[in-house]
């Protein structure tokens, strides 16, 4: 069992948190990650910022812009991870081009040489090698569907990293089979169509997706829109093994005067909510959805 799978199964129900690294600086991120670790996060995703984050809503887009404006680079990101000593395993979430380009500075630009030389093909192994070296346990790539994942998957296998796939509300039939047969670490269940971002409620699609996945014996964690302890309770009660929270934490980073303290408290609230979801008491604090609702 991988570190990630163990972190979810051993700490069931698991709390998975996301922060964008470098927002507003890498030193701050270090303090925030430690706060989340203390607050009860069982798995921590760190975003390596990319300039074109097509899967993100406004909150994480803004965090990524702040991180890029602060000069966050892959080199600095890996140094941060190297320094972190958390109980929770760490994953990197980034877009595929960041993985492709890592460490490829030797490749000549076409303009620097005559007669277009065959370019050295981008190679994903350098990124994975460095990720393993600094102690990352897994990788999530929102713009890499299973169909294009073979090179990265091979590199991850070689270095013992999990490559986590997202299951969307539109993932059905044969594609669902294919993805579920490749689950590594856990299945990232996208709670609703659209982009990331805190929402006021838990979508019906979450219940549908969890029902569709109930036959598969793999850890399932639900993200996209989760912001409160009550959401966590409802999601765990609906059959998930973990909840993933990102934008709600980034709001704290952006708005709080004492982000580390508030992040730790938020993690505690979310973890308590998740635990409530396992003993049935979650129903008392929320409007339980009609089981028959379409």
């Amino acid at each position: 069992m991988s570190d990630i799978e163990a972190a979810i199964r051993d700490n069931h129900p698991a709390l998975i948190t996301y922060l964008t690294a470098g927002d507003p600086s890498l030193e701050d991120t270090k303090a925030y990650v430690e706060a989340l670790d203390r607050g009860g996060a069982d798995l921590i995703e760190l975003g390596l910022p990319f300039s074109e984050p097509i899967a993100e809503g406004p909150t994480i887009q803004a965090a990524i812009n702040r991180a890029l404006d602060a000069g966050t680079t892959p080199a600095g990101f890996f140094e941060l991870v190297d320094e972190l000593e958390t109980e929770a395993p760490l994953l990197v979430m980034t877009y595929y081009n960041m993985i492709l380009q890592y460490g490829d500075s030797e490749a000549p630009r076409a303009s620097e040489s005559d007669a277009a030389p065959p370019q050295s093909k981008p190679d994903v192994r350098l990124f994975v090698e460095r990720a393993a070296e600094v102690g990352l346990s897994g990788i999530i790539v929102p713009d890499l569907p299973a169909e294009e994942s073979e090179p990265l998957r091979a590199a991850c296998d070689e270095h013992g990293l999990d490559l986590v796939f997202i299951v969307a509300p539109t993932t059905e039939g044969e594609r669902l089979e294919t993805i579920m047969s490749q689950v590594s670490g856990f299945a990232y269940v996208q709670a609703r169509l659209g982009t990331t971002g805190a929402r006021a409620d838990v979508s019906n699609a979450t219940h549908d997706s969890l029902a569709r996945l109930s036959a598969y014996d793999v850890p399932k964690a639900v993200g996209f829109g989760v912001s409160k302890g009550d959401h966590a309770a409802e999601i765990i009660e609906a059959g998930a093994d973990g909840v993933i929270v990102g934008s709600a934490l980034i709001d704290i980073v952006a708005e709080s005067d004492t982000p580390a303290i508030d992040l730790e408290a938020k993690a505690e609230e979310l973890k308590r909510g998740a635990i409530r979801g396992t003993d049935g008491t979650g129903e008392d604090e929320i409007d339980a959805p009609e089981p028959e609702q379409p």
């Binding site: 990319f50 300039s51 074109e52 097509i54 890029l68 680079t73 892959p74 877009y95 595929y96 081009n97 960041m98 492709l100 380009q101 890592y102 490829d104 500075s105 490749a107 630009r109 076409a110 303009s111 370019q119 093909k121 981008p122 713009d143």
Partner: peptide, 22 residues
């Protein structure tokens, strides 16, 4: 002048930094 990478759904030539920012 571009180099190979992934943007907007496809692998293609791009104007990008060494790190891969567009």
């Amino acid at each position: 002048t571009g180099t190979g990478g992934v943007l907007h759904g496809a692998m293609t030539k791009l104007l990008q930094s060494e790190d891969g920012q567009i």
